[in-house]
Nucleic acid binder design. Structure first.
Length: 386
RNA sequence: GCAGGGAUUCCCGAGUGGCCAAAGGGGGCGGGCUGUAAACCCGCUGGCUCAGCCUUCGGAGGUUCGAAUCCUCCUCCCUGCACCA
């Protein structure tokens, strides 16, 4: 029974029988999951392996969360056609710090061990690195799909990128992992971990992969594509983004995220709303989920202004140049703002604005709206002044 | 090292002296429609208080009345050859 929980939704559990053997050891297993810090967000898709880690924790095992602060300096090329940008130390540091908090929305804190891989990677000597590189061959590396594709397509592959799987594999050595979790795109790296562990005289880890979550655009969820739902995004944002998925993604999302089957006769709208509530509630609690749904109903379904609209002081002049106000209030260029006006997307208290210049008295105290989701209340008094 | 090819607006990708703020697609934004921030249809998509002006086509110079387009140098990428104790 517990084995089924541990491997729910798993795509690969390798080698065959390996997990059973590990469990038979009768001690808490060390279950590793490495995460890169290239982006400041962990999204719900990346939360899937975290959910697996949680399942292990619920059975008394230890989750070892590895923050790839050092590996990020190289950039994992998995599934990418080009090298990731190298982040500055400050950015890496800033991202890493928020990860623990984000992951805690899913993990059991008391059974989580958090490690930064700079802890051991930074101290390796050149000779140590050479020893590591001897374990695998170029041909083995080029077997990896994305490397193979890039090589065949004449795309550049830097030597440092080839080192990535080895570094990640060495993490497994350093933390003595029993099991390593990851998305299916990580299969190669996880298996490399087995090989490297063996070369260092350790019992190789068991590899468990989970499916990649397909987002509303049909692509795998990814922070760099912008089709993601971050675990720490504001409630309304999480809710709205969830509502973007098409109905036929619902069964998959139910299975992978909620870990239940969507009843075949379920009403799509109700099911999607329930899913959105669940996602928000996991991150922010029931109350926030309720508020997010209310916001969605009001703003998106009914097209009305939300309860809380931020204030925006009007400029001093008698006649107000609307594009300038829009640009300033919503962080757009005045050209973009002009286009919005030209397209009839700008309203003041539900009346469509057609003039670029409007007398100040017709604006004061009213709600300015640009498009469906941008609202601001125009006020007389500049903030912080009296 | 040698020889070719390449770098275009957020991305991909046309454009090879004026008709170019630059085709087309993607993405994004907006409007319509909708249970939906889905799908679909239509429009917009460098900046600027905008019938005009200003700044873009890897970088720096140059030719020309006029350059993304021609020339020189530089940077980066790709391919082939050479190298391979």
């Amino acid at each position: 029974m517990s084995l089924a929980d541990l491997t729910r939704n798993a795509v690969h559990v390798l080698p065959e029988g390996g997990l059973e053997a590990k469990l038979a050891l009768g001690r808490p297993l060390r279950v590793k999951l490495g995460i890169d810090v290239t982006s400041p967000d962990i999204h719900v898709g990346r939360g899937i392996p975290l959910q697996r880690m949680r399942a292990f924790q619920d059975e008394g095992h230890i989750g070892v969360l590895i923050i790839g602060d050092y590996t990020t300096r190289i950039g994992d090329p998995s599934g990418r056609s080009s090298e990731r940008p190298i982040l500055s130390d400050e950015e890496i540091e800033r991202n890493a710090q928020t990860y623990v908090e984000q992951a805690s929305r899913i993990l059991l804190a008391e059974r989580t061990e958090i490690r930064f891989n700079s802890e051991w990677l930074a101290g390796l000597s050149f000779a140590d690195v050479i020893r590591l590189t001897r374990i695998m061959t170029v041909a083995q590396m080029l077997e990896r799909d994305d490397f193979a594709a890039r090589y065949a397509g004449g795309q550049p592959i830097s030597i440092s990128e080839l080192l990535y799987p080895l570094m990640q594999a060495y993490d497994s050595v350093a933390v003595r992992a029993d099991v390593e979790l990851g998305g299916t795109d990580q299969l190669y790296n996880l298996l490399a971990g087995r090989e490297v562990m063996e070369a260092y005289g350790l019992e190789p880890q068991v590899v468990l992969t989970t499916p990649l979550l397909v987002s509303w655009d049909g692509e795998k969820m990814s922070s760099s594509l912008g089709n993601n739902i971050p675990l720490t995004a504001p409630p309304e944002e999480q809710f709205g983004r969830t509502m973007r998925i098409s109905d036929d993604l619902l069964p998959e999302w139910y299975r992978l995220l909620r870990e239940v089957e969507l009843p075949p006769d379920a009403d799509p709208l109700e099911a999607k709303l329930a899913l959105a509530r669940w996602i928000v509630a996991r991150s922010h609690g029931e109350e926030a989920a309720r508020a997010a749904e209310e916001h969605f109903t009001r703003v998106v379904r009914e097209g009305r202004a939300p309860d809380e609209v931020p204030d925006k002081p009007l400029p001093e002049s008698e006649v107000v140049h609307v594009p300038a106000v829009i640009a300033d209030a919503f962080g757009l260029s005045t050209s973009e703002a002009r286009r919005l006006v030209a397209q009839g997307a700008v309203r003041v208290d539900d009346a469509v604005v057609t003039d670029l210049d409007v007398p100040r008295r017709e604006l004061a105290g009213r709600v300015l709206r640009a498009g469906k989701r941008r609202f601001v209340r125009l006020v007389e008094e500049p903030e912080g002044r009296r």
